[in-house]
Design a protein around this nucleic acid. Structure first.
Lengths: 344, 344
DNA sequence: TCGTCTCATGTAAACGTTTTCATGGATCGT
DNA sequence: ACGATCCATGAAAACGTTTACATGAGACGA
């Protein structure tokens, strides 16, 4: 029943109205079993009449926490971000936590800046989608008393940090084996750039896949950077040498899309002339022509699991860090086919 | 120099070390001009030695604010969301505010839930990407003492709420005129569903465009819902009647993509046989084949402007609400061409 | 009937700030 | 040399909670 111009009701207003002390009101809310049935009713009534909601700032100050988690991403626009955030947000919200987001754009300056949320106590935990521990700007290293951290999307090699993500190696092995099963013997891996650990993981899965083949297949790695432009460029470089694979296993869907359009531009058809396999299963993979055969990242699950691990850790600081790898399904659409006669 | 196991330094620690009162420390930080040069130096030194950072919760409690803004979206996965959020986040961060995100998934239950951030004072303002005022669950209407609100992405018709978005009407008119200038006389508008106000705005822009034509052109509206599936369905329905346009102006890029793939599936070519024009310029529009001709939403600018308006209002509550329409450029790629002879 | 125990409640400290108000010393004009 | 003015500082209240501790009333067994 809070009136327009009024300031919000405090616990004191409720106490006065109910004829009890503020301690009793607090108890009626936090630990109802400690207060007599009769007074609990009076308090409930008073709360309803005043429209009271506890001031979170006061609670948090008193309880030395914030019920907030900071999510640091290098790019909000990353096609995987939305899905992961959805999962993170859901899990957090389910447990009464809020999600604070920070976009570092890959710059350490902004990264630095967001750490203020941690040092001022505005956030209790940290989710990293940046692939590295935020650098400490000051000479002193506050890393030691950083809050619980969990990394997603990009692994961070630090024993203090939990990680949850797709099993890059296993999924890449499956992808490669699939191409081999279609008859391909000349399979290129287009990387995601030297700075990205995931690229190495996927490459090593690709190698494992090659090894499973009856014949000895060539490790054929071409450098890219994860952009569709780099996919196009990779194709152009291959055509210069005139040394051509029959299938492309790409670091991600963006790259695969670049590869496909470069091939199409040269008059080839996918999958008739070349097979192209991606990674991520970005929302658009299904709308692309041809439909992209790819590895699906269970983005929402990844987010949920990551947040769950973090919040568990927040509730019980003695919990150990853990690495959790989720299975990535091979999604078969249209971009891969049997080996072309023409190029065999 | 905060040691690992220690609790963070408080203002009192600093005061003790500097040999002054906590009031002086506070003043040295908030209004340095009020404290003598010499003591200011002592305080600065003490702060450096202790590694002190002010506890945000205590500050906010005292100052009756939170320095946080809640962003409510109906879907994080919406292709426009990331860009707008990037802008929102940037503007907020520039002014020391944090961005709290809430994913309502279109359900009022979750919407309700997120309002707790407002009622508990965890957020000072609200950004709505949902297209409507969050419904009050309780019989009483707390709408009157809602904080400053700004809507983006989807307009909300309420004088208390500012809006910033693309000028749907003007942009749609330009789009339609462009199709007419290419020679098209039979232009379908595929809507975004009855619940979406933007669909009506774009339709009315389309009508204005038609009116500019020398000939009287038919208002040809087909219902869709903004999904690529609905674009496909719309094409199928048209083919049943065998009454065909030469050009499609679609509510959004998703729909346009659905239209194009349905046409291609039937063996037609875009833009040779039909022209298709979208709206939004989603990140993928450029990777699609053919490249999508569309209206670009200046997403990041929209976000920045929206946040700026909100924060200005937060700083000065007497500021008026405002509606700010940004220009949407026509991005010409490959999906529109001259009118096909065959179907003329 | 009297201690003892339990249980519901109240009192007050604490969380870490900002800011009003009071105070005392220095500076200044006369 | 003395009151007025100014300026830097400190003491303490306030923001709205939670919770350890004290208190007092009933219940209960001896």
């Amino acid at each position: 029943m809070s009136e327009p111009g009024e300031r919000p009701a405090t616990i004191e207003d409720v106490a006065k109205l109910a004829g009890v002390s503020i301690a009793t009101v607090s108890r009626a809310l936090r630990s109802p079993e400690k207060v007599a049935e009769s007074t609990r009713k009076k308090v409930t009534a008073a709360i309803a009449r005043t429209g009271y909601t506890a001031n979170a700032m006061a609670q948090n100050l008193r309880m030395q926490r914030s019920q907030m988690v900071l999510v640091l991403a290098s790019s909000i626009a990353d096609p995987n971000f939305a899905g992961i955030l959805t999962g993170l947000e859901k899990a957090a919200n389910d447990r009464g936590y809020g999600v604070l987001i920070g976009n570092t754009e890959g710059t350490t300056g902004l990264e630095q800046n967001y750490l203020r949320f941690l040092s001022t106590g505005m956030a209790d935990g940290l989710v990293l989608l940046t692939g590295h521990i935020p650098v400490a700007g000051q000479p002193q290293t506050p890393l030691t008393n950083l809050p619980p951290i969990v990394a997603t999307e990009r692994p961070v090699s630090n024993p203090e940090i939990s990680y949850v993500g797709v099993d890059d190696v296993a999924a890449s092995k499956v992808a490669t084996e699939y191409l081999i099963s279609l008859g391909h013997r000349r399979i290129t891996f287009i990387s995601g750039g030297p700075a990205d650990i995931r690229s190495d993981l996927r490459h090593s899965g690709y190698l494992q896949g090659l090894k499973e083949s009856p014949e000895a297949l060539r490790d054929w790695r071409v450098e890219g950077d994860g952009s569709s432009e780099s996919g196009r460029a990779a194709v152009e470089r291959l055509f210069i040498k005139d040394d051509l694979p029959t299938a492309f296993f790409c670091f991600n869907d963006n790259t695969a899309i670049g590869v496909i359009s470069a091939l199409q531009l040269r008059g080839y058809r996918v999958p008739e002339d070349f097979s192209v396999l991606g990674f991520d299963d970005i929302p658009f993979a299904n709308n692309f022509t041809p439909g992209l055969t790819t590895i699906r990242q269970p983005r929402q699950h990844i987010g949920e699991k990551a947040m769950t691990i973090l919040l568990d850790r927040l509730a019980n600081r003695s919990l150990e860090t853990q690495t959790h790898l989720l299975h990535g399904d091979l999604i078969v659409r249209e971009s891969c086919g049997g080996i072309s006669r023409k190029l065999k």
